[in-house]
Every structure is written in structure tokens, then in C-alpha cells.
Amino acid sequence: MKNPLFQYVLSLADDALIIGQRLSEWAYRAPFLEEDIALSNISLDLFGRANLLLEYASEIKGGGTCADDLAFKRNEREFFNHLLCEQPNGDFGKTIVRQFFFDSFYLLFLTRLAKSKDLQLSAISQKSLKEVTYHFRHSSQWVIRLGAGTQESHEKLQNAVNVLWVFTDEFFNMNDIDKMMVKQKIGVDRQALKVEWDKEINKVLKKATLKRPEKGHIISGGKEGIHSEHLGHLLSDMQYLQRAYPDAEW
């Protein structure tokens, strides 16, 4: 069985990497120039976090692996991000709702992970917390503006919430590795975050005049490398140069 700590760190890295990649697709396409800068700022923060985590993961793995090897040479079944992260951008509303679910979860998660016995994870979390706080402010404010803005924006946001809701539960699943890490006081009890997350989400959704969907079909599998069909396309784009020129250094 793979080193559980390696797996744990990799999963956290993949979340940041994949959603960062999605955000970076918004270059020159945002609703106005100021927002272009805001989104690319957030994607830079996420790539920074992914890089730190991938560097740590490659340390754990050893054997001369580096962060780029992990980012550019793994295949679809070897990525362990949550499914929400790889969902396509859609319109600005869908991107913002995806970001809102992600940021609200990670704000709670990283606050706990900052107390990890693992010094690296603790340090990375503390550094990321400042950024995530800012990201959450940005995405939640936009959810409110768009939810409570016009009839059109309200409908688009409600639709986005309905479509992406099925991917939120996955964040609170504890697989064997999560359980192992919690036992070692390295990882975070995800289930324990659910109640607080619900509270925070409900606050924002209320201000945004948006309805919280009924609990229905849940989709998960990302942490086991079972992904939606979107990930393959994302990776073939992202990894293209390294795969086309395996002997080259960039």
C-alpha cells in the first residue's frame, strides 16, 4: 500500500492544483478587467499552495521525484482531488459557486490542519490561511451579489448551486487514510466540520436569497482516483508539453 502520508498530502495538493488550473482558464475572459486580476490572483495562490504540497509529497516519496514530476506525469487514476475541483467553469456564476463551496470548506479545514503534528502541513496551512480567508470573502461576496442581484443572476446562481451541490458531500467523507491521519494527530476529522460548514453556507445562501438543495444523489470517488470525464481533458491539456518532450527540461 502506498505511503498513507504521501497519499494524504497528494490529495490536498491535487485539490489546489486542479481548481487552480480551472481558474487560470479565465484569463482575459472575466466580466471586467478588475475581476480578471482577482481570479488570476486566486489561481496564483492555489498554484503556490499546490507547489508547496507537491514538493512535500515528493520529499516523502523520495527517489529524486520533484513537484513537476507529480504534476505532469501522473495519469487520471493517480489524481486524488475531490470531484468538485475538476468541474468545468461554465459561466461566471458557476465558477463562483464552485469556488465558494471550495473556499468555505478549506477555511474550516486549514484552520484545523494548522494544528497538525506534522510540522510541514502545519506551516503550509498557516501560510494558506491568510489567502483562503481572502478567497472566501471574495467568493461569498459574489455569491451574495449575484444571488440577490437581478432575476437573471439569481436564476443562474440557483442553477449553479443545484448542479454543484452533489459534489459537496465528498469533502466530508473519511476514507481509511483520513482515519489513519486523524489517529496520528496529523490529519483533520472532516465529518466534524459538517455542522459548522452548514452554518456558514446557510448564512451566505440566505443573504444571497438562494435555496439550499434537498439532500439527494451524492457523487464521490475522487480520492480513490475515480473521476468525472472532465479530468482526462484537463490533464491532456495541462501535461501536453512534458509528455510530448519527455527528455526536455523546461
Partner: peptide, 24 residues
Amino acid sequence: GNWITRAPSLRAKMVLIAKVQDEA
């Protein structure tokens, strides 16, 4: 921006995003 998603390393990607952001 055409090459952001395909940048061949994490560092190259971050530098390119920062550059395009500067242009904005």
C-alpha cells in the same frame, strides 16, 4: 493567455499567469 493552461512547469505557469495579470 493561450499558453497558460499548457505551461510546461509549475513555475513557468505561475510566472506566465503573473505576467498576463500584470498586463491586465
